[in-house]
């Protein structure tokens, strides 16, 4: 049986892992390869590097990080952050990445996804979608209850989400559900879906969003943004239909180990690789 995947995400800046909440007060957390090795030995199913290097002068450092990782770790590696051209993708894949995740560049030009999938194959093209709820009046302060509620058929029409970029600072006007349909058509092999309402809150995934996206497209969904407890990951799989769960802080700060996470899921009859 296909196992549900647990994917730790490492934020990498200028070739170093950084930890912080919402990219604020970042502290150095060591060498990416060393961090990756730990997750590897704990039984992570894949790894994701999110390159948040700001200076374009230092953009090539990630290539070296990927090369060094691929020499030591024999598991799937996804790299995201700042990918703008087919040449960026070619260099990352050549260095040893298995997949790249494209976010802003896809919003700017959806055909970029099509060209990338055609050239390198859909299997290595992940489209990262950051989505934000359009209607907020029904949840307001009750963010927690709202996240847990999967709307029934009648209510589904009420909730809509919009694609945002730059950490939610820029709204695009694009409907998130229409967007994922388009990205699947363009040849995306997977969707990494982040709720910008819940990211960093530790209140759980936006289950309604994840469920709707998962039911809409046939490609796998990686749920991201908001995990605070193991129950949140469990809900992402069982209530929202996610194929994989990506989390950063709960693993970074050693709140839970990968193994502990998988044991929790196994005990609740979620298929995991242990």
């Amino acid at each position: 049986m296909l196992a549900k995947r647990i994917i730790p995400c490492l934020d990498v800046k200028d070739g170093r892992v950084v930890k912080g909440v919402n990219f604020i007060d970042l502290v150095d957390a060591g060498d990416p390869v060393e961090n990756a090795t730990i997750y590897d030995s704990e039984g992570a199913d894949e790894l994701t590097f999110l390159d948040i290097t700001a200076s374009s002068d230092n953009r090539d450092i990630i290539i070296d990080v990927v090369k060094r990782t691929a020499e030591q770790i024999f598991m799937p590696l996804t790299v995201g952050g700042g990918i703008r051209s087919l040449d960026d993708i070619r260099r990352l894949l050549k260095a040893g990445a298995d997949k790249v995740s494209i976010n802003t560049a896809a919003v700017k030009d959806p055909n970029f996804v099509k060209d990338a999938a055609k050239r390198f194959g859909s299997q290595c093209i992940v489209v990262a979608v950051d989505a934000k709820r359009r209607k907020t009046e029904d949840w307001g302060v009750k963010i927690k209850e709202s996240a847990r509620r999967i709307p029934d058929k009648e209510r589904k029409a009420d909730l809509t989400w919009e694609v945002v970029t730059h950490g939610g600072r820029e709204v695009t006007g694009i409907d998130a559900i229409e967007w994922v349909i388009k990205m699947e058509e363009m040849g995306a092999g997977e969707i990494m879906l982040t709720s910008m309402d819940f990211d960093g809150t530790k209140e759980g995934y936006d289950l309604a969003l994840t469920r709707k996206v998962s039911d809409t497209v046939s490609i796998p969904i990686v749920a991201s943004g908001g995990v605070g407890t193991l129950e949140h990951i469990y809900e992402g799989f069982t209530k929202a239909g996610a194929s994989a769960a990506l989390a950063a802080s709960i693993f970074h700060f050693r709140e839970y180990s990968i193994r502990e996470t998988k044991e929790y899921l196994r005990d609740r009859e979620v298929p995991v690789r242990l």
Binding site: L2, A3, D45, S122, Q123, S214, S218, I219, G241, S243
Partner: peptide
């Protein structure tokens, strides 16, 4: 066949991840 279901969930294609 991408239209198949596994329980409540769509059979996702590509088949991606760890399987036995």
């Amino acid at each position: 066949e991408g239209k198949a279901f596994v329980g409540e969930d769509k059979l996702k294609v590509p088949h991606m991840g760890w399987n036995q």
